[in-house]
Design a protein around this nucleic acid. Structure first.
Ligand SMILES: [Mn+2]
Ligand SMILES: [Mn+2]
Ligand SMILES: [Mn+2]
Ligand SMILES: [Mn+2]
Lengths: 249, 249
DNA sequence: CTCGATATTTAGTGCATCCTAAATTGTCCG
DNA sequence: CGGACAATTTAGGATGCACTAAATATCGAG
């Protein structure tokens, strides 16, 4: 099945497969121009690369229609994503790297580190399941939590949620701002008010009440929080079966 | 002075400059075939790369005569060597990597890590001055201990020396064997006997008396050790001024 | 001093990746 | 249904880095 590839993916190839995987997840498909945008290359370059990757069995390409990963392509993408996220976690947790700067570093190291090193880091971290931005870390054999989360922008006024992750870790300014207002994975956030016509949202995070725009809110992925009733212990362990169903492949 | 380079050395370029630096140090010059051998490429490939690097001001090339680093070339080489050796030290000391496997890993990471990360690792290690193989780590501004050491093969029978470093860290088998007989930087070794006609050497390291071939002995760089006389304190602090002169540029 | 072995360079290619400009295709609106 | 416009692919090139085979320079031996 696997094509007679030169037995090691190049850096550009790994980045293409990773980008296509993410686009497929977000948008259900990956178009030439989306990939071009994500990788900052010309659309024509994407067409060329896509032809080669399709020939090597990493993806299916219907001209003028878009591109889809094969099993081999998805496996390669998830391997790179695992490396990226383990590296980010190590940089943050062990070396004290700020969370807005780990992405660029990991973007290069992910192609250079050996499997042995990656697993060594993972072990040193106690086999983490999510990276500093809350993104799930695929397992060695390519299983990953693919749950889709709601965003802070969709939260109903008065409701509380727990932040799960940032939609993308590529924007340092956004990440710095989120850190400023203490919005990080695990944080509880309440939507206090929402201005009409897609206006700003008033949040409560701990004591603070930051006001954020809808664009930012759409970048913050949340999950419902099981508010423990102050005195009555009954509803605390409410199962919530539907929301916690992990999709693994 | 610096040529209009595309503002970042590629991985092959960094490896060429590093190899040329090492050859220049060892042999006083770097010939096309030596570089080709060191990098496992064809001699014709070296000629091509050398032409480009000379055009960019990293080295001087006299056709048919050999190649020499310019100041820019030496600086680039030392930067890569610093990264390599800091990475090796981190892998060994913090992650418990065996000393015979750090080289290959560092050989790739050295091109991907940012300056920031390298300095972060150096700080975490307390700014080490030598790598796991005893090789000196250049400073950020390109200063390096360039002392030339004698080898174990040159030691006089009956004399004791302290191992400084392994001549090269590229041979895992050699490194594993050295570790087996407890020959590591800092170890004290006494030459007990030398068989004639370039025969094997009998050493004493701690309690053990391993017998090694002259090829191996030539890979082990040593410095004279100031044997503290058990009772008489006279000869202990013998100055030995010539041997300890550090050459820094 | 000349010859031949050896080292080195030149010539001619291939492949991966990128680019710009010019076709081509798909879509959607009037 | 027929364009217009946007998205996409094709065409034609460039760059970096590698290779093999052929030419050429160097140098030591006789
Ligand atoms: Mn990358
Ligand atoms: Mn991340
Ligand atoms: Mn290298
Ligand atoms: Mn080393």
């Amino acid at each position: 099945m696997t094509a007679p590839s030169p037995r090691a993916l190049t850096e550009p190839v790994e980045d293409y497969l990773k980008a296509i995987y993410e686009l497929e997840r977000r948008n259900g498909a990956a178009s030439t121009s989306e990939v071009a945008l994500a990788l900052a290359v010309a659309p024509a370059s994407v067409t060329g690369m896509v032809r080669r990757l399709a020939a090597q069995g990493y993806l299916d390409h219907v001209p003028y229609r878009g591109v889809q990963l094969t099993a081999a392509g998805r496996a390669a993408a998830l391997r790179t994503i695992r490396r990226h996220r383990i590296l980010e976690t190590y940089l943050t947790q062990v070396l004290g790297y700020p969370w807005d700067r780990v992405h660029d570093e990991a973007e290069r190291l992910e192609h250079a580190a050996s499997d042995e090193l990656i697993e060594c880091l993972a072990a040193a971290l106690g086999h983490p399941t999510s990276d500093p931005h809350g993104a799930p870390i695929p397992t060695v054999d390519g299983l990953v939590d693919e749950r889709v989360h709601r965003t802070l922008a969709d939260l109903a006024v008065g409701h509380t949620a727990r932040m799960v992750r940032v939609a993308s870790d590529k924007d340092p300014d956004l990440l710095r701002y989120l850190a400023d207002i203490a919005l990080r994975p695990g944080a509880e956030v309440t939507l206090v008010a929402r201005a009409p016509y897609d206006g700003p949202l008033t949040l409560r995070i701990g004591e603070a009440q930051p006001i954020v725009g809808p664009n930012l809110a759409a970048q913050v992925l949340v999950e419902p929080v099981l508010t423990p009733a102050p005195a009555s212990a009954a509803s605390a362990t409410e199962p919530k079966p539907a929301a916690s169903r992990a999709r693994r492949r």
